[in-house]
Design a protein around this nucleic acid. Structure first.
Length: 606
DNA sequence: ATAGGGTTAG
């Protein structure tokens, strides 16, 4: 019987048919059962087909059982799939790989790796599908060590030039933050397609190297192999966002519209985020309201975007709307909500959200949420509460860096040398952001007029070989990018005007009830790198009667311009762009060459 | 049976 099956895999007669002397009909063929399996849309019909397959003896057939396993996986019944696999007499490479992919789908990538270990003990050889699946598991786990071991196996088994395996390797190295290794794989590929290019671009975009991502995108377009698709454009827009490159972002947006990808939810949320980070919250808003049924991510992008502009009330309104439309918030949404409260002085609302996020929405507050609240309390000067909250939070090193860094800057802002000392002590002892901790501590002492302490910190830094890279900020005006380094203002022809403008802004802020430290105009008479705060045009302290607004690097002046906050900001913008144009031409923006020729305008959108 | 995209506090 078995022999017969092997000879004629599609039209064999199950033993039951023979014994009852059935006439063979299509209803009892393998092809029929496989067709049946593909039609199974629910668990119940699958169970029934499964029992028919069993009844007609096809469970001995690996090909049929593999289909059955895949159907269980598709209907999210991984345990049934696993059980079925265990009962197989001769699982082949497809059975093994299907089950691995199934465990990945079910959110258990470690199980896929464990299965590979088991497969290794069997006589079945892995193929390229198996390796692509395994690499994918490592990518999800961001497990570089295992990823490298799998990569070694890929080489041993000779799949190092397989397109899919290489694309997944690039992705895996990217997710593990090893872009160099990702690029090495990319370089060694004999043939590349849109997917491999996208993996490479995304790896750079996700690892704070947006300029390389954009460079690769230009190369891809020059090669004219293929058109960029929505996957690629989403990554390119992400790169523009991280660089604050509004012009490039708009060009990409135009490409999105031309290629008809503007209804794609993922692309739209990348655009919402990009415009927000480039200082155009009004464009974010336009893109956002065009999304038919926004999922949690575009909602979160919009909440975070509005929060960064000090539009805390708007953030909270969007959050409410999201809840009304039954979109479930996630942990990042709550970071946005708390951030909004923090930057708009909505302290009570923020505390309320932290208290109720679990019982109302099932999201357990973790270190990042509590850090937002520490920031919120710290900003408004409730340093003692912020400090005791900080002490109560269990953190991993990277979370601690953020938490204690937050507390340190709040302490500096409010001149709390005592708490600043504790916070910088934590950072330095944990070897987290050591240079920044030293500089901020030194600035706190400078603010308090304790110059001896300032000098002793400076000598300590020297002794320990700690060097702080000067902070910088940049702005895109028309086609050029201008970079400001901390300390540059004194080198600038109209630096004194900037300084007096900042002093004036500060005076008016205080008039409007701003509490907190100076605008960062403490000209510390120490080394250059200590003048962290001098050009603090990206500082939240330019908020002016709107509560406290943070302006991340790269969105500096445009933010002020588009905020329509007050006349003062417009004046500041005019003055600063004037200075920038005359004295600070750093470099021309790398244009998107392929989009030149006037084909690309955003007119069709606006 | 296998590959690629978007949201995270200072």
């Amino acid at each position: 019987m078995r022999k017969l099956q092997n000879q004629n895999p599609f039209f064999t007669l199950p033993s039951t048919c023979l014994s009852r002397q059935f006439k063979p009909s299509y209803c009892h063929t393998k092809a029929h059962f496989i067709q049946n399996l593909q039609d199974c849309r629910n668990f119940k019909s699958l169970i029934s087909t499964h029992s028919n397959i069993l009844k007609f003896g096809f469970l001995n057939d690996t090909f049929t059982t593999n289909h059955l396993i895949n159907r269980y996986v598709k209907l999210q019944k991984i345990n049934s799939a696993h059980q079925l696999f265990d009962e197989m007499s001769e699982p082949n490479v497809v059975s093994w790989t299907s089950l691995m992919a199934g465990f990945i789908d079910a959110g258990r990538p470690k199980m896929a790796l464990w299965l590979f270990g088991k497969m290794h003990e069997s006589t079945v050889m892995p193929n390229s599908f198996t390796f692509a699946t395994l690499v994918n598991a490592c990518s999800i786990l961001a497990d570089l060590k295992t990823g490298k071991r799998v990569h070694a196996q890929v080489e041993i088994f000779g799949f190092q030039s397989n397109l899919v395996v290489c694309s997944s390797l690039i992705d895996m190295y990217g997710k593990c933050n090893d872009v160099n290794e990702a690029h090495r794989v990319f370089d060694l590929m004999g043939f590349r397609n849109v997917v491999s290019w996208t993996s490479m671009i995304a790896a750079y975009a996700q690892n704070a190297q947006g300029h390389v991502a954009l460079q690769l995108f230009r190369e891809f377009n020059c090669l004219m192999l293929d058109r960029p698709n929505h996957f690629m454009l989403a990554s390119v827009i992400n790169a523009c966002a991280s660089l604050g490159r509004l012009v490039s972002g708009k060009v990409s947006h135009a490409a999105v519209i031309r290629r008809g990808h503007d209804s794609n939810d993922v692309v739209a949320s990348a655009l919402v985020d990009m415009y927000a980070k480039c200082g155009c919250i009004n464009y974010s808003d336009k893109v956002f309201w065009k999304i038919p049924n926004p999922s949690v991510i575009p909602y979160t992008s919009m909440i975070v975007g509005a929060a960064k502009y000090g539009l805390g009330k708007l953030s909270l309104e969007i959050f409410e709307e999201m809840l009304e439309r039954r979109v479930k918030p996630n942990d990042i949404t709550f970071v946005g909500v708390l951030h909004a409260c923090s930057h708009s002085g909505l302290v009570d609302e923020g505390l309320e959200h932290l208290e109720t996020m679990y019982e109302k929405h099932g999201i357990v507050p973790d270190a990042k949420h509590r850090s937002c609240v520490v920031d919120m309390l710290g900003r408004t000067g409730r340093l003692d509460e912020a400090y005791s909250l900080a002490k109560s939070i269990q953190v991993k090193p990277d979370e601690g860096a953020l938490l204690w860094g937050t507390l340190l800057s709040a302490s500096r802002l409010h001149g709390r040398v005592d708490i600043a000392t504790e916070a910088s002590k934590w950072l330095i002892e944990s070897k987290q952001q050591v240079a920044a901790a030293y500089v901020t501590m030194s600035n706190t002492y400078a603010f308090a007029g304790k110059w001896e302490k300032v000098h002793s910190i400076r000598s300590e830094m020297k002794r320990n070989g700690v060097y702080k890279e000067p902070g910088c900020s940049w702005v895109e005006i028309r086609d050029s990018i201008y970079v400001f380094y901390a300390g540059d203002v004194s080198l600038c022809a109209r630096g004194s005007e900037v300084v007096s403008l900042l002093r004036e802004l500060e005076r008016r802020m205080k008039e409007k009830g701003y509490v907190g430290g100076s605008m960062g105009l403490v000209f510390v008479d120490v080394e250059e790198e200590a003048k962290e705060e001098i050009v603090s045009l990206h500082s939240e302290r330019l908020a002016l009667g709107f509560g406290l607004i943070s302006m991340p690097k790269g969105m500096t002046i445009r933010v002020m311009k588009n905020l329509r906050m007050c006349r003062d900001c417009h004046e500041a913008f005019k003055l600063i762009s004037d200075i920038v144009e005359r004295d600070f031409v750093v470099r021309d923006v790398n244009r998107f060459h392929h989009f030149k020729n006037g084909t690309c305008t955003c007119r069709d959108f606006w």
